[in-house]
Amino acid sequence: MTDTVSDSSTTDSWTVAGRTFRSRLIVGTGKYKDFEQNAAAVEASGAEIVTVAVRRVNVSDPKAPMLTDFIDPRKITYLPNTAGCFTAEDAIRTLRLAREAGGWDLVKLEVLGEARTLYPDMRETLKATEILANEGFLPMVYCVDDPIAAKQLEDAGAVAVMPLGAPIGSGLGIQNKVTVRLIVEGAKVPVLVDAGVGTASEAAVAMELGCDGVLMNTAIAEARDPIRMARAMKLAVEAGRDAYLAGRMAQRRYADPSSPLAGLI
């Protein structure tokens, strides 16, 4: 017997800036109880990329455990972020240091506009994208869910555009499915929903909209059982991707029976 359904977990992949990944889930490494739990959640999520922040070393406690002792950067791709940066200048400075610390060019750019919403400042984001691309960086860029802004980022050298589904850490789910779909339809680079996913069904929604991937942190880290939620997210991303590829049925306003009407007794 021939199985005509290809197993998407073994054949499906996506490519960003020439690098190919099988997992479409990128997970953050913040807010976990400890490094052990963080590492176990990454493992359960199946993620091949994790986001990391760049911060000062605590010089008074140099022997404190480091993230790299628990999540091996030779096995998992570290995607350094610019969380906490509110200007292009700060973000660029942070990523220059990240490149020196890690030795790679693939980075996550986010330039924030205000602390309350952590909404991106697109003017600064666009400026930083251009400068980084000119310096040889490969920026994956956190942005508003605006198809025009997404195009401008792409033109400026973004290797992926990553619209928010809802504010960072809010877990409100994807608020604007229409604009996310418009971004997907217009983009020539990968599109990932970054921020806003709160539970597995919302990750599936992002994938059903045709996104290439989903990036999340809080939804896993703040779940009661982060490791189980990491697995749920893995499955949801795979399910959503399959549903997108399968092509959903058309919607009808009224019922349509699934059992034949002919032959009724």
């Binding site: 913040g30 807010k31 986001t51 610390a101 942190n217």
Partner: peptide, 10 residues
């Protein structure tokens, strides 16, 4: 001097 490293983040 600034000496930095990677820490957990989203």
């Amino acid at each position: 001097l600034e000496i930095v490293h990677f820490v957990g983040g989203g």
